[in-house]
Simulated assay, not measured.
Amino acid sequence: MVSITTGASLAKSIFPIIGSQLTTALRLGLAAVVLSILFRSWQHHPSREELKRILPYGAALAGMNLLFYLSIARIPLGIALALEFTGPLAVALYGTRQRQDLLWVLFAVTGVALLLPITDLSAPLDPLGLILALAAGVFWGIYILAGRRLALIGQETGMRGGIMVAWGMLTAALVVAPVGLITSTAVHMNARLWMQAFGVGVLSSAVPYSLEMVALKQLPTRIFGILTSLEPVVGALSGFIFLSERLSWMQALAIALIVIASAGSTYVESRRKHVEAMALP
């Protein structure tokens, strides 16, 4: 989470020079190169069935990253992350019939409502930035569902997780590249900008995706999910340290409510699955 949010802060610092779209394209492209080298993805050529899962996964990854970068160009990093978390939270709560899960929905809805400019308590924020962050959350939800389908085909064919991520990252880079090139103005990419873009790709994608795969092997999914729910808090701290972004107490409360909703739903769902597994003969 520290790596992801530091990378996002670094990315935001170069938006005024090369724009958020080109930054996204460079991040995904450089991350794809690093992951391909790390996992030697060229040694595994995806089959037609694998491509059917990789392409939606990569497209969702592209949409999620592009919309998120467009949003943090307009609103603080911590707030954008909190709103983006509504995507995976919606996936986790979809179809639930447990009354206690309504509590997490209430927390999340209240947190989002406090951030949106619909009450006198809400601090002024760019409406388009808020919409883009929520849209990024939608793509995050799609990304989770596409990732599950990709993981299933990987289990059937024996394709390793790192290779799947590398091919998905390459797909995302190819999707965003035209947008980045078309919307960018004439930019002289000097050595410093290339190093910053490389840092964004490594910190925001290559390092965290690799660490997540290691962490998931060492930690129960419940603990991993709860820890991941703290990302908006880490993002707010990163925005404060590196970008001097200060949040109002109401915005901090809204982020806290969304974090509680995400962590709480993760914990309850994992406990429910544990109990169901123990009840099986």
Rank of each mutant, 00 (worst) to 15 (best):
Q196E: 11
H274S: 14
S3L: 11
I75K: 08
I75S: 03
L145E: 14
S262A: 15
S13R: 06
I255S: 01
I131K: 12
P16M: 09
I153M: 10
A215I: 02
Q251C: 08
V33K: 10
S262N: 11
S13I: 05
A256H: 03
A206P: 09
V214S: 04
G129Q: 09
R149I: 03
L102W: 13
F242A: 11
A8E: 07
L26D: 04
Q218H: 13
A123E: 10
L89N: 11
G78K: 02
G141L: 11
L10K: 00
L150D: 07
S204Q: 12
L22K: 00
V187Q: 10
L89V: 04
G137P: 10
V200A: 08
A215K: 03
S9G: 11
F240D: 02
L83F: 08
W104K: 02
V234D: 02
S244D: 15
L216P: 13
F85P: 04
E49R: 15
V34R: 02
L134S: 06
R246P: 08
A261Y: 01
T24D: 02
P178I: 09
R148P: 13
A173T: 06
Y69N: 11
L61S: 07
I79C: 04
H188P: 09
L280P: 01
K52G: 09
R74T: 06
G180R: 01
Q155Y: 12
G137E: 13
A11K: 01
Q155N: 12
V176F: 08
V112A: 08
I4Q: 08
A62N: 07
L114R: 00
A25I: 09
G58E: 08
A172T: 07
I255T: 03
S36W: 10
E276A: 15
A252M: 12
G63V: 06
A279G: 03
G19M: 11
L121I: 15
E84Q: 13
A108E: 06
R246D: 08
L253E: 06
V179C: 07
P281T: 14
S71M: 13
R48H: 11
A80W: 02
L106P: 03
L35D: 06
L116G: 00
I255F: 00
R74F: 01
I72E: 06
E245V: 10
K273T: 14
Y57C: 01
F240M: 13
T96N: 11
V179I: 15
A197W: 03
L22S: 04
W42S: 11
I4E: 04
Q98A: 14
L247I: 06
L134V: 10
L22N: 04
H45D: 11
G95V: 07
S36N: 09
A31K: 07
L103H: 10
T119E: 02
L181R: 07
S270I: 01
I255W: 07
